[in-house]
Design a protein around this nucleic acid. Structure first.
Lengths: 183, 183
DNA sequence: ACCTGAACACCGTTCAAGT
DNA sequence: ACCTGAACACCGTTCAAGT
């Protein structure tokens, strides 16, 4: 890759992080290009879809979550590992308001730039869930997709200003439900 | 109101119901006006905001939900009344994909055209919840806003194509959590 | 009173023309 | 190779002009 191309690529990601932080995942792509000091066509050359651009932002975070799951898998009790990871996953997802819908859509769309990262994250959660289930510390009738769905829904909830004040408490309720051994 | 104004008003609602059904709550207002055979300014005269237009569509449904709560309050056991209403509330909310965000925003914005309807719906749910709590059939650490939030989040989940297949099951999990007497 | 549609300031996306 | 920005087809919203 040519030096100028690489610089543009990097500046686009920097600008995107700022703009998405301010306006959410539906932020204007024109504004990203503007802020990066780059033509609009250059943005499309580097990131042909909005997903591709977000993937550039989120990949490192996804990887961190998967790594965290591996760490918890050995460092904590099955129940505590699962609960901690659930809470951290929700907290992290709330940060990217608007990205939750994209994440959810990407998990069943193999063509999405976010697909691989989503699948990896689900796999990490599945590991923790299975371990907790084997220890009798989580409901047996849940799978990794359910966990992913619950994290997404609670993150959506936390991103709604009107509901955010109760989000932590409601997450407690859901965590209780996930960890109830019966059914 | 003049006869032509009334006819335009009604046709706008008919068109809006169709267009929102097809494209969700973010549907193009231009398309609504087009489909109603009406100038764009006429739409804005009758419904000055998008909320006002949606309110026209949703008010009857909100009222039905409140009435349903009253009915269940006398016809069913406290637990069953709450659970049935929760399920029906989620099922109904899923129908209006995209409207969930608006509903949630409206409940704390007194200027929203949807505000009164949202508050009434929350009040109806609060009645059922309180009754169930007094019967020891629901967690004591939940209030009407929590119920509203959980309904919204589960409706959001059900509206995501990738998660919809598990939505019913996850609602069961949440219902179990709401009805767990402890904590 | 009520209606219309042009006008304005924005989008996302594509692509001919430049270096 | 890579970049630019005009062009196209859309938005939401406002408002002067018409009946």
């Amino acid at each position: 890759m040519r030096a100028d191309a690489r610089r543009n690529h990097d500046q686009l990601l920097v600008a995107a992080r700022a703009v998405v932080g301010e306006h959410g995942a539906e932020a204007s792509l024109r504004e990203v290009a503007r802020r990066a000091g780059v033509g609009l066509g250059t943005l499309y050359r580097h990131f042909p879809t909005r997903d591709a651009l977000l993937e550039g932002l989120l990949r490192t975070e996804f990887d961190a979550l998967a790594a965290r799951a591996a760490e918890l898998g050995t460092a904590a009790s099955p129940r505590e590992a699962l609960v901690t990871w659930l809470r951290e996953g929700v907290a992290w997802t709330v940060e990217y308001r608007g990205a939750t819908e994209l994440m959810v859509a990407a998990i069943e769309d193999p063509d999405s730039a976010l697909h691989a990262s989503c699948v990896a994250m689900r796999a990490a959660g599945t590991g923790l869930l299975t371990r907790a289930q084997e220890a009798g510390a989580a409901r047996a009738d849940l799978d990794g997709t359910d966990l992913f769905a619950l994290i997404s829904a609670m993150a959506w909830l936390g991103a709604q200003p009107a509901l955010a004040p109760r989000a932590d408490h409601l997450l407690d309720v859901v965590v209780d439900a996930v960890c109830a051994p019966r059914s």
